[in-house]
Design a protein around this nucleic acid. Structure first.
Ligand SMILES: [Mn+2]
Ligand SMILES: [Mn+2]
Ligand SMILES: [Mn+2]
Ligand SMILES: [Mn+2]
Lengths: 222, 222
DNA sequence: GACATAATTTTGATTAGTCAAAGTAGATAT
DNA sequence: ATATCTACTTTGACTAATCAAAATTATGTC
C-alpha cells in the first residue's frame, strides 16, 4: 500500500510530465511542486525507486514506471472526480475545492469512487476544465493552447484553467474567465506584458501574460 | 493539528466511554480497540496527555479532557454522517461503509461536512441506528437496551446494531435485524446461551446471547 | 582551462508511530 | 503472608518523512 505521501509525489510527477511533455522530472521541480527541500526530494526519489514507482537517474530526474503511472493516473482521476462532486453536488466554490480534494483523494476507495462517478453521470472534465482520466488510466490530451499564444482579433473558447491559486480562481470566476466562455482578443502588448480580452457582452478584461499562460483556450469560429 | 492516528485514538476512547458509561478507559481496552500492542497504547497515552487531549492515570487508564472530547465528538459526527452518505446517496451496503468512513473521516473538512449534512437533510441517526452527534457535540443517549436483556413474549423495536463486523452486518440485513423492525421474543434459553425472535410476518431467527448483546432495542407496544 | 554559480546529493538530526520482549505492580488465591 | 497471574510499563529498535547545512557535481563565463 502506497502512503498518501507517495501518492502525492507520483501524482505531481505525472502532472509535471503531462505539462512539460518530457518524461523526466528534475529533483528541483519535484521539490518545488511538493514544497519540500531538495534533499527530501532526493531521498524520496530513492525510496520511490526502491519500491518500483519511478526510475531515478541521479542528477537528471525521475520518470514514472508503468506501475507508478498507473497509480498516478488513478490519483488524478480521484482528485478531479472529487472536485467535480464538491462543486456539482455540494456547491462549493471552485477556488476551495483543490485543497479539499487534495486530502480526500487519499481516503476514497476505488469502490466508492466508482459509485461516485456513476452518481455524477461520468463527467469527463473537472470544474477547472481539466480532463478526468478514465478508469483504465487514459487521459485526453487537450489541443488547447495558453491564451498568451493567441494573436489580436482572434475569438477563443476557454477550455481550462491550469492554476490552483485561490485568488486567481476567484478573479477568474468574477471575470467569467471559465471553461466554455467565448472571448475576443482585443489587444496583445508584448512589451507591456499584457493583453486585453472582451466577452461577447462587451466587458473587457486586462490580463498579464504570466496569467494568460495559465488559461488554455481553443480558437472559436462563430 | 491532530494526526489521523490521534483522531482515531480519541474517537475510540469516546466510543468506549459512551458504551461503558465510565469515564476512564484502561490501556488494555485502548490497545484492544485500536489493535496495537499494550506498550504502544501506553506510549500514546503519554503523548496524548502531553498534547492536552486526555488525562492519563498510570495503571488505571485515560479520560478525555474537554478539548479531547470535543475533537472525539467531531470525529464521531464525521464518521456517522459519512456512513449515512455512503448508504443513502451512493448506495453502498451497510456492511462495507464502516471501513470506508474510517478513512474518509480524517480527510473531510468541517466546511465540506456542513455541506454534506445539509445535502443529506441533517439526519439524526446513521445506517446502523447510532445517533449522530450535533455540530455542537451533543449526542443523544439512547434508552435502548441489548436484546439479551429482554424477556420472553415481549415485543421490541430494533434501534441500533453496535457492531461493525461485516459478517454479522450481512447476517443482520438478511434476517431483517435492522433499525425500525419489530420482533417478538419467542424464547430465551440462558442455559443454551440462545434466544429466538419472530418477525411480525412469522419468520424466526435464532441468536446467540453474545450477538444479542450487540443489538439494541426498545420495548414495543402494539 | 579555471572559476563562479546553480542544482543536486549527502550527512546528521528530529518526530510520530509502531513492535517485541523484558520488567514491575496489583490483585487473587491458597 | 506468600506465591502466582495478569495487566501495565519500560526499553530498545525500526521505518517513514522531513529539515538544515555541508559537500559535490555540472554548467556556463571569461
Ligand atoms: Mn493529496
Ligand atoms: Mn482541477
Ligand atoms: Mn479513522
Ligand atoms: Mn455506524
Amino acid at each position: 500500500m502506497a502512503s498518501s505521501t507517495v501518492e502525492n509525489y507520483l501524482k505531481e510527477i505525472l502532472v509535471v510530465t503531462l505539462e512539460t511533455e518530457s518524461s523526466k522530472v528534475s529533483m528541483g521541480q519535484v521539490s518545488k511542486v511538493l514544497r519540500v527541500t531538495p534533499g527530501t526530494a532526493t531521498a524520496m526519489a530513492k525510496s520511490l525507486e526502491r519500491d518500483g514507482w519511478v526510475s531515478y537517474y541521479p542528477r537528471v530526474g525521475v520518470s514514472l514506471t508503468s506501475k507508478g503511472k498507473k497509480l498516478a493516473m488513478s490519483m488524478l482521476r480521484r482528485h478531479r472526480l472529487l472536485e467535480t462532486f464538491l462543486v456539482e453536488t455540494l456547491g462549493l466554490d471552485w477556488s476551495e475545492i483543490h485543497a479539499e480534494a487534495e486530502e480526500l483523494e487519499h481516503a476514497i476507495s476505488e469502490k466508492v469512487l466508482e459509485k461516485l462517478d456513476e452518481f455524477l453521470g461520468r463527467p469527463r472534465f473537472d470544474p477547472h476544465g481539466d480532463p478526468i482520466p478514465s478508469k483504465s488510466g487514459v487521459i485526453k490530451r487537450p489541443a488547447s493552447k495558453p491564451l498568451s499564444e493567441f494573436s489580436e482579433n482572434m475569438s477563443v473558447r476557454i477550455e481550462s484553467i491550469v492554476d490552483q491559486d485561490k485568488k486567481f480562481l476567484k478573479f477568474a470566476r468574477k471575470t467569467k474567465l471559465v471553461p466554455g466562455q467565448i472571448f475576443k482578443i482585443l489587444r496583445v502588448e508584448e512589451c507591456a506584458d499584457a493583453m486585453t480580452l472582451k466577452t461577447t457582452k462587451g466587458q473587457s478584461i486586462n490580463l498579464g501574460l504570466r496569467s494568460a499562460e495559465k488559461v488554455l483556450a481553443l480558437p472559436f469560429e462563430s
